[in-house]
Design a binder for these strands. Structure first.
Lengths: 147, 147
DNA sequence: CCTAATTCAGATTAATCAGTCTTAAATTAA
DNA sequence: TTAATTTAAGACTGATTAATCTGAATTAGG
C-alpha cells in the first residue's frame, strides 16, 4: 500500500509529534534508534519532509528536526503525498491511464469511492491525534514495544 | 496499491472471462496483444494463476488458458491474494509486525476497518460481473480503447 | 578558535521487481 | 511422422527502491 520510505516517514513524524514540546529539536539519531530505522536512510526521508514544508531542521549540537507547524495542523495525508506522490489517491486500481468517469475501467465506480474515503480518513488523521494516542500508552510505533 | 504483476493478472482474467464461451481456450499471445502486456511476462503471471487454481491451460495449437471455474465463482480477491499474497489485506499500514487489537499502532482502528471493507468489496467483485461490464461496452481493459 | 555534534550531499551497494530472450516440452493437424 | 503452434521453464538484463558509507557544511559550547 505505502512505500517503505513513506512508512518510515509517518512513524518518524508521529514520534517527533509525541516527543517534542514547544519547538525543541529531536535528533535523527535518536529517532532512528528508538524506531529501529537506518539512520542515513531516515535522514534522507526527513530531508524530503523538510523540503515539503512539514518539518524544519537545525544542524549542530542540540539540533535535529521538529515539526514546521503545530501537530494539529499536519495530516497523515500531507506526509503521504510528499513521500509517495499525490497520485496514490487518484490512480486507477487496474493501472489504466485516463481511467475516470468518461472512460472507466470495470472497477472504477467501486474503487473511486473507497479511494476517496481513504483519502479523507488520512486527511482527518492529524499528527496531534496520533501522537496523543501514543503518549497515552499501549500504542506502538516501533517493532519492539516500550521503546 | 497492487503490484504490476497483479494488475496485469486482473486485466487478463477479466479479458478471458469476457472472451471465452463454454471452456474455449484463449491464447496468451492474443491476450498480450489486445491488452498491451509483454507476452513472456504475462505467461508467467498466468502460470501462477493456473497453479493457484483460478485458470487452466492447454498447450499446442488451439491451446491457451481459460477459467478453471465459472466466472461467477471467481472473485478479484482470490486473484489478488494469489499474485500479491494474502497479507495485503491483513498487514499494518505502518508496517509494524504483530499490530492488532492487542498491540495496535496509532492508525490501527481506522485502517483495519477500511482494510476489511476493501477486502469484502474485492470478494464481491466476480469475474462474471466485471466481464459483463466490459462486454456492455464503454468500459476499458487496455490503454488504447476499442481493442 | 577548536572540537564535538549534528544535518546535508553524493557515491556506492544490495535487493526487489519488471521485462526480455532462449530453449524445451506438449499438442494438434496434415 | 513431421511441422507448426502453443505453454513451461529458466537464465539474463534493466529499472526502481532500499540501504550503506564517506565526507562536507553548519552550529553550539568551551
Amino acid at each position: 500500500m505505502l512505500s517503505g520510505s513513506c512508512i518510515y516517514g509517518l512513524r518518524a513524524a508521529i514520534y517527533v509529534a509525541a516527543h517534542t514540546s514547544n519547538d525543541s529539536y529531536v535528533s535523527i539519531r535518536e529517532i532512528s534508534e528508538k524506531l529501529g530505522i537506518s539512520f542515513h536512510f531516515l535522514t534522507k526521508i526527513l530531508q524530503r519532509l523538510t523540503e515539503g514544508g512539514v518539518m524544519k531542521s537545525h544542524r549542530g549540537p542540540g539540533g535535529g528536526v521538529t515539526l514546521a507547524r503545530p501537530a494539529a495542523r499536519i495530516s497523515i495525508l500531507e506526509i503521504v503525498e510528499i513521500l509517495d506522490g499525490p497520485d496514490i489517491f487518484r490512480s486507477c486500481i487496474l493501472g489504466l491511464p485516463g481511467c475516470g468517469e468518461l472512460q472507466p475501467c470495470p472497477l472504477h465506480k467501486e474503487w473511486s469511492q473507497y479511494r476517496e474515503r481513504l483519502r479523507s480518513m488520512f486527511g482527518r488523521s492529524t499528527l496531534s491525534r496520533l501522537a496523543g494516542k501514543v503518549s497515552e500508552g499501549r500504542l506502538r510505533l516501533a517493532d519492539v514495544p516500550g521503546k
